[in-house]
Computed example of a mutant assay.
Amino acid sequence: MKQGQSHDQERYSLMEKIQMVDFALVDLTLYLDTHPEDTQAVQQFNQLAVESRDLKTVYEQKYGPLRQYGGSFSGYPWNWADSPWPWQL
């Protein structure tokens, strides 16, 4: 495997982990809307929220901004136009 392919595979793998964790957060959000007293679900939500934040921080350090509306800082020069964009992976 060439160096570039390895780098791309790492990027795709990291994005897949982010998507899996964020999907679980959406699912838990819906569950907690109807079961707000479920302590275990709240704990799991909080653990996944930290994991999501940490994975996104790693992604941004390696590949550039990921979160919009001030959730991510831009490098200089402005690097939001760099591609592929996260949703293109």
Rank of each mutant, 00 (worst) to 15 (best):
Met1Gly: 15
Lys2Met: 11
Lys2Ile: 07
Gln3Met: 08
Gly4Val: 11
Gln5Lys: 12
Gln5Phe: 10
Gln5Pro: 05
Gln5Ser: 11
Gln5Gly: 11
Ser6Trp: 07
His7Ile: 15
His7Leu: 09
His7Arg: 12
Asp8Asn: 13
Gln9Thr: 14
Glu10Leu: 15
Glu10Lys: 15
Arg11Tyr: 00
Tyr12Arg: 15
Leu14Lys: 11
Met15Asn: 10
Glu16Trp: 09
Lys17Val: 05
Met20Ile: 15
Val21Asp: 06
Asp22His: 08
Leu25Ser: 09
Leu25Tyr: 04
Asp27Glu: 14
Leu28Val: 13
Leu30Ile: 08
Leu30Trp: 02
Tyr31Pro: 04
Tyr31Ile: 03
Leu32Ile: 13
Asp33Pro: 02
His35Thr: 12
Glu37Asn: 12
Glu37Leu: 08
Asp38Asn: 14
Asp38Lys: 06
Asp38Pro: 01
Thr39Asp: 08
Thr39Phe: 01
Ala41Thr: 13
Val42Arg: 11
Val42Cys: 01
Gln43Gly: 07
Asn46Val: 08
Asn46Cys: 04
Gln47Ser: 05
Leu48His: 00
Ala49Glu: 02
Val50Ser: 04
Glu51Phe: 01
Glu51Lys: 10
Glu51Met: 10
Glu51Gly: 03
Ser52Tyr: 00
Ser52Val: 11
Arg53Leu: 12
Arg53Ser: 13
Arg53Trp: 03
Arg53Asp: 13
Asp54Thr: 13
Leu55Lys: 05
Leu55Glu: 05
Leu55Met: 08
Thr57Leu: 00
Thr57Asp: 00
Tyr59Arg: 02
Tyr59Ser: 05
Glu60Leu: 00
Gln61Gly: 07
Gln61Met: 08
Gln61Glu: 11
Gly64Ser: 02
Leu66His: 07
Leu66Tyr: 08
Gln68Asp: 07
Gly71Val: 00
Ser72Met: 01
Phe73Ala: 14
Ser74Ala: 10
Gly75Lys: 10
Pro77Ile: 03
Pro77Cys: 05
Pro77Val: 05
Trp78Arg: 09
Trp78Ile: 12
Asn79Glu: 13
Asn79Pro: 10
Ala81Glu: 09
Ala81His: 07
Ser83Cys: 00
Pro86Met: 07
Trp87His: 09
Gln88Cys: 06
